[in-house]
Amino acid sequence: MKKSLVLAGLCAAAFPVFSSMASAGPIESACLRSGRDAASRALCGCIQEVADMTLKGNDQRRAAKFFRNPDQAHEVWVSQRPADDEFWDRYKNFGAMAEAYCAQ
């Protein structure tokens, strides 16, 4: 009985950790795969938290592509399309908040 309670307690404590690992968002995944020296699970997770607060899913997926191909960010930045300008404003807000919130 005692072992069952201990095992149940450990499973309950571990569940949030494993579920958060399994449900990494697009920004966190791209950050972790980026190969940058500063990319850590803690930092990339923090950046994903900010993305969840500031960007919708389609914006997150679009921004995640910038980790693989930074030239895409430049293309959006210089674009004359109103939709790109609106996205860029949201992306800049996300970047500023992530920098302030996740600074180490």
Score class of each variant (00 low, 15 high):
residue 76 V to L: 11
residue 39 A to W: 00
residue 96 A to M: 14
residue 14 A to R: 03
residue 79 S to C: 02
residue 99 E to W: 05
residue 13 A to G: 13
residue 9 G to K: 01
residue 35 G to W: 12
residue 47 I to F: 02
residue 35 G to C: 07
residue 83 A to Q: 10
residue 87 F to N: 02
residue 99 E to S: 08
residue 76 V to D: 00
residue 32 L to I: 04
residue 104 Q to W: 15
residue 41 R to V: 14
residue 99 E to T: 08
residue 64 A to C: 04
residue 56 K to P: 10
residue 81 R to M: 13
residue 5 L to G: 06
residue 32 L to N: 02
residue 72 Q to A: 14
residue 85 D to A: 13
residue 66 F to D: 11
residue 84 D to F: 03
residue 88 W to E: 09
residue 55 L to E: 11
residue 43 L to D: 04
residue 103 A to V: 10
residue 15 F to K: 06
residue 5 L to K: 05
residue 31 C to M: 03
residue 83 A to M: 06
residue 98 A to L: 13
residue 88 W to A: 15
residue 80 Q to M: 06
residue 24 A to K: 03
residue 102 C to E: 03
residue 28 E to N: 00
residue 100 A to S: 12
residue 85 D to Y: 09
residue 41 R to F: 14
residue 30 A to E: 02
residue 59 D to W: 06
residue 73 A to K: 04
residue 20 S to I: 01
residue 29 S to I: 00
residue 46 C to E: 08
residue 30 A to W: 02
residue 56 K to S: 15
residue 7 L to E: 05
residue 33 R to S: 08
residue 75 E to S: 05
residue 86 E to Y: 07
residue 54 T to H: 14
residue 49 E to C: 00
residue 38 A to M: 08
residue 45 G to N: 01
residue 95 G to N: 08
residue 42 A to V: 02
residue 7 L to T: 12
residue 102 C to W: 09
residue 30 A to H: 03
residue 19 S to H: 15
residue 44 C to P: 10
residue 25 G to I: 00
residue 35 G to Y: 05
residue 30 A to D: 03
residue 39 A to V: 03
residue 12 A to C: 11
residue 22 A to E: 07
residue 13 A to L: 15
residue 53 M to R: 15
residue 45 G to A: 02
residue 53 M to C: 09
residue 90 R to L: 07
residue 71 D to K: 14
residue 49 E to D: 11
residue 43 L to E: 08
residue 50 V to E: 06
residue 54 T to R: 12
